[in-house]
Amino acid sequence: MIEGSARRSEIIRQLSVSEKPISASNFAKQFGVSRQIVVGDIALMRASGEEIIATARGYLLEESKSKEGLLSKIAVQHGPEGTRKELELIVQHGGEIVDVIVDHPIYGELVGGLHLKTSKDIDAFIKTYEGSQVALLSQLTGGIHLHTIRYEKETQLEEIKQALLEAGILYQSE
């Protein structure tokens, strides 16, 4: 079993070379500690300035992510049954879904990291959601939510918005 500071250094090293998220459970098994110990390690590292992103599939180091491309936020609205369609339309038109954002009446802005780039990423996210007893953040706000989208060309954003509009998902004020 690796002790605290050595374990945290190894977590950072592994995240820095990985292109895919690594779960707390994976680290826990590897280091012979509980998942909660790893979650605590991550919290300590984030508090000390490490840019670690938590996704539904595990942790990523921000430095290992490509920061290239353009970013925009889009507003959408749908029920849980529209989630897969929404995500697929964004990815099919060249977008990466960076996060989901809701405006909570008590806590203000809540942000959940997603980092979904491929159909495989979407499948894993949906499988995790369907296998859990947890509500989507969008269910807290009547289905209205934002996504930060990363894309390469302005035309891709317009294509994404048009596809979401045609599917009845792009949020339109009344």
Rank of each mutant, 00 (worst) to 15 (best):
L146E: 10
G94K: 03
I12Y: 07
S173A: 10
E19V: 07
P21M: 00
P21A: 00
S5E: 15
V111C: 02
E166C: 09
L136C: 05
S34W: 10
E62S: 08
I12W: 06
D41H: 11
H78W: 02
R13I: 10
I2E: 14
E159Q: 15
G4K: 11
T141L: 13
G113M: 06
G168Y: 08
L136H: 03
I126L: 03
H147N: 13
R8E: 13
H115G: 08
I169T: 08
K73V: 04
F27P: 01
L61K: 02
T83L: 14
G142C: 11
Q36F: 11
I97M: 04
T55H: 11
K153T: 04
G168F: 12
V134S: 11
I22Y: 02
S34T: 15
Y59W: 05
E159R: 09
G142Q: 13
I37D: 10
Q30D: 15
E63I: 10
P21D: 03
R35D: 12
H145V: 02
G4S: 13
F27H: 08
E154F: 01
A6C: 09
I144H: 09
I106D: 13
Y129R: 05
V39F: 11
H78A: 03
T83Q: 06
L89N: 00
K127F: 12
G4A: 14
R84D: 04
K29A: 14
V17D: 07
G82A: 07
A43G: 08
S25I: 12
N26Q: 11
I106Y: 15
Q139P: 06
S48Y: 06
I149T: 01
P21G: 01
G94E: 00
G82N: 08
E86C: 06
A75H: 09
H147W: 04
I11L: 04
E62A: 12
G82R: 04
Q92W: 14
F27K: 04
H115D: 11
I126E: 02
E158F: 07
A47W: 08
M45I: 09
Q156M: 15
S48F: 08
L71M: 11
Y151V: 03
K120V: 08
G58T: 06
I149Y: 03
P21Q: 01
H104C: 13
Y129G: 00
E88W: 10
S5C: 07
K65N: 04
L165S: 13
K161Y: 08
E166S: 15
G82P: 00
I101D: 00
E158M: 07
G79P: 06
